[in-house]
Amino acid sequence: MKALSAIELRRGKVRSFSIVHLKDYLIAYVFIIPSLAGFAIFFAIPAIRGLVLSFTDWNLLNSPTFIRFENYLRLSQDEEFWNSLWVTIQYVVENVPIQTLSSLLIAVLMAKVGTSMAFRGVMIIPWLLPNVVVALLWSWLLDPAFGFINEVIKQFGHGPLPFLTSTAMALPSVVGINIWRHMGYIALMIFAGIQSIPKEVDEAALIDGAGPWRAFFHVTLPLLRPVLAFVVITAIIGSFQIYDTVAIATKGGPVQSTWVLNFLIYKTAFEGYEMGYATAVTMVLFAILIGITFIQMRLMRAGEAD
């Protein structure tokens, strides 16, 4: 019963703000104005500039001319774009569930089994290495000619595996590398969520006769919803923007099997000098992310502020 009341409190049954005064508005704006200023200057204005540029033929060094929807029309018929989109979706679909589940598992282990600081410290180490170093390190460990992992495989009498050099294995290898770097870090966020669940809730459930599994699925997990929603949404957004690992370990290949959207955007903008077209691709990516987040917020009901 105790548990229930805690949940009710959490849902925010008590409302005392039915009458709002102008003064309250002003105070609220004082709270958001610093962040709003940062947002406007360094996020909103550049993004709007980007949107405008997507309707131009800007090549970085000319003065842009307005060309209406030409970039978007071209994009709709661009095989390379559709391939990139497909590759990126595959990446997200492979990456997000595995990453989230393994992070959840690690977080639970952090909270219930390996409560020592050392375990948390160890799990976060890969994330302390810059992306670029991680990509180089793994492309070395996985190298067919002199990588340690392939040396071990050779000991078992098997030929070297082309982890990063075959169309079948390249994308899953990139997924694996990124999960290795991020799982401890995401686990830490979920762990922080588990820690902020009042102990009483957990204990109450156990006293009520629920086993640890039941308590986890019926009490802990629902209370983790806002945190999990956050983790999944940011993981999807982050995965859609994967770049470094691909740019270093596979260079988009073999045969464009890892030619993800951000790689296409970067190549188009800075090697092809088609900045206008690149921003159009970016805007499509942006629209996709907004759509997905919107649906997700609805599904996970993460937006329940009051």
């Binding site: 492309s139 050099t165 370990a249």
Partner: peptide, 13 residues
Amino acid sequence: FSYITPTNGANMA
């Protein structure tokens, strides 16, 4: 070709 990765060229092998 699968033996030589884009990161580590033939020179490293």
